[in-house]
Structure formats: C-alpha cells, structure tokens
C-alpha cells in the first residue's frame, strides 16, 4: 500500500478537519474525492507533517509519518493547492532549487529541471520569473517542482484548478502519463469527479472529515449500476410492495419517484411486470448511477441526509 491510515485525525484547535479516517491507498493512482471543505487538503497536510496529526497513525510507503518525516519527504512529491511559487526565481531556477532541496546535486537538479519543464509544457517560459506566470503556468510549475526528484508517491492537491479547458486536459494527460509509470503512485485530491474518472484506478471518498467509501472506480460504478430512478402514476404503494416481494431495494426520492435497486441478476423487465401486476403506469425508468459523479452525489447526499 502506498498510504495507510488508522483512525487518522487532524484538528485545528476545536475544529476536526479529518475525523478518525481508516483507509488504505493502493499503489497506482488514487483519487481523494470530496466536496469543498471535506478535509482532503487537511488529510494530505497531516500525512506530510505540515499539520501535526492529532490522533491515529499513518504510513506512507511503509514508513511511519510521525517518526520518519524527513525520509518520507524525500520519497514524495507535493503539489499544493495554494498558488505557491518561490519568488525571485525563474522557472528553471525554481525547479532546480526544488530538486536541490530534495537532495539532488546541482548538476542533476539542473538537468532534470529542463526535462520536467519540457514535459510540463513550460520549455518556452523557463527563463521567465515565476511571478510573471499565468494561473495555468503556475499549476504546471508546481507539478514540475513536485516531480523533479522522481518521487515514488505524488500528492496532487487540486491540480487542475484555475486552468482553462485545454490546459486542464493537458494536465490530466500529464498526470495519466506519470501514473502510467509503474514506479510512481499518485494521490489526486479533487472535487472534480471527471478528473478522477480520467486518471485514477481507485477512489477514496470523504465528506466533512469522515470516510464515506473507498474502492476501485469500476467497483463503485458497478455497485450502483443496478440502481434505477423510477416514477409511476397510480397506486405507488402496491407497486413498491410487488417490487419488494421480488427482492428489490427501494429508497424514496420525492412523492412519486424512488430509487430501486435490482436484486443480483435482476433484469429491467421486472419493472414492467411489476407495473402490470400492480396496475400503475411507468412514467420514468432511468439508470440512476452512470458515472462516478452520480455515485459521489448519492454518497455525499445520503451522508447529509443521515446527518440531518
């Protein structure tokens, strides 16, 4: 596992940003998904020791985050969410500096800085002061400084924020390319689900500091694949009764609508048979979860619902 968490908690005074999360991030690309304020950034900061964890334990690449901080920081790369740059330096200067701070020799850091800036699409702007960079360029230079020392694990915090659509696609392509190298694992923290779907194999969903779900992207899609959104006209209760008798799970969703989860192996014909038997008109029948986004909305929505 690239990251394991056991009751991991991060607090800022009385505010608990990450609340006893136990999870594991397998090697490869993992999406850390959650709405704004879910605790994604706090979780990453806690793992990197930028904010001291208040409870629980965690390991990164098998090393304890409390006791082996310095070693861990040599093995990881971090692209912060904030608009962080090191002022006064040129693009090449900043990436070289980042490499040297990670323990590379000056010559290696300079050579590698040219490589990663070329890869990040900043080869034309590498001799410009970083303060003059646009928002998209700053995202790219942050990625370049994070990968200059060829880390084993890369934490990317909202890597596409502030980028135009073309730049966003290029950034995602770049992340996919890096994740495609078997040696590098990626933790991609974002609230943009499409980004996770495009780049990640696994997903960890958190909301309000708590873990909601962790699984592979495919498995999450599959788990929600047999769920349908149904609307009927007529004796709704009778229709629900028939469906329940045939092994379906039902969650109300408004006066005439409900989500129906088919039993294992169940087919959509079942809805038509139930409608016929209960004497209702079937006005709507749609797969309710088609994408990770739908699953995410459902999970976060049900979390809010459960809380209220």
């Amino acid at each position: 596992m690239s990251v394991t968490l056991q009751d991991f908690t991060v607090s800022y005074g009385r505010v608990t940003a990450v609340d006893r999360i136990s999870a594991s991030f397998p090697p490869g690309a993992t999406g850390l998904l959650g709405p704004n304020g879910a605790g994604k950034t706090s979780l990453i900061r806690g793992l990197l020791g930028l904010v001291p964890p208040s409870f629980g334990s965690a390991t990164i690449l098998g090393r304890d985050v409390r006791r082996e901080q310095k070693l861990i920081r040599q093995l990881i790369g971090y692209m912060p969410e904030d608009d962080s740059i090191i002022p006064g330096l040129t693009g090449i200067g900043m990436v070289r500096y980042a490499g040297e701070l990670s323990g590379m020799s000056g010559v290696d850091a300079m050579q590698r800085a040219h490589e990663v800036l070329f890869l990040s699409g900043l080869e034309e702007a590498r001799y410009r002061k970083v303060e003059t960079y646009s928002a998209g360029m700053r995202q790219r230079i942050k990625l370049a400084q994070a990968i200059v020392h060829d880390p084993k694990l890369l934490f990317l915090d909202e890597p596409t924020s502030g980028m135009d659509p073309k730049g966003r696609l290029e950034m995602l392509e770049l992340i996919r390319m890096i994740a495609g190298r078997n040696r590098i694992s990626i933790v991609l923290a974002t609230h943009i689900l499409v980004d996770v779907e495009r780049t990640c194999d696994h997903v960890v969903i958190i909301n309000r500091g708590k873990l909601l779900k962790q699984d592979s992207v495919g498995e999450i899609r599959r788990q929600y694949a047999g769920t349908f959104s149904v609307r009927v006209e007529g004796p709704k209760e009778r229709f629900e009764e028939v469906l329940r008798s045939r092994g379906c799970g039902i969650t109300p969703d408004g006066a005439h609508r409900f989500d129906v989860r088919l039993p294992d192996g169940g087919r959509t014909e079942l809805f038509f048979e139930a409608a016929r038997d209960s004497g209702v008109q079937l006005r709507r029948l749609l797969p309710s979860v088609q994408t990770l986004e739908d699953a995410f909305v459902k999970l976060v929505g049900s979390d809010r619902h459960a809380d209220s």
Binding site: L48, G49, L50, R73, Q74, I76, Y78, P80, D82, D83, S84, I85, I86, P87, A98, L101, S102, E131, Q145
Partner: peptide, 10 residues
C-alpha cells in the same frame, strides 16, 4: 507567495 509548503514538504 505561499512558498513555505514548497520548502516544508521537502
């Protein structure tokens, strides 16, 4: 310029 995380993540 919020550069401190860039230092202290190393």
């Amino acid at each position: 310029y919020k550069a401190l995380p860039l230092y202290f993540a190393r």
